[in-house]
Amino acid sequence: MSVMAFIAGINPVAASGAVLVLVGLWGVLSRPNLFKIAVAFSVMETGVNLVILSVGYIRGRTAPILDSAADARSASARMTDPVPQALVLTAIVIGLAVTALMLSYAVRLRTGGGDSSIESYGEEKW
């Protein structure tokens, strides 16, 4: 029963998003390969999206889309928060473009005779 109380007390979306952010951070900090770092960034990005969206999670409410059956006033009392959804929607598309840009830098370094490991660029300080 205490497990149930624990689940009711936390926000499950925020919890899984936060753990995913930590997993991605571990990958970004500890892996030397550039492609692995890009994978870790995309895992971290999914986690951040979950954390943002967790603000709009309300138990027992449906998606913010009106169907023709119900009238507008009573339907709005059964819907979740649409604002974080609108923000995350665009963030996901941007995430793909940024990942592609990151990967094209990695490919460019590799085909230019460089190395895929970030350790080889240690001496190039600014």
């Binding site: 890009a38 819907m79 979740t80 793909l96 990942t99």
Partner: peptide
């Protein structure tokens, strides 16, 4: 959690196109 728009985007982009791009 009631966000079908975001779910569609994530399924198409996150698990489809991102994998292909990688």
């Amino acid at each position: 959690m009631g966000a079908p728009d975001v779910a569609m985007t994530e399924a198409a982009i996150g698990s489809g196109l991102t994998t292909v791009v990688f």
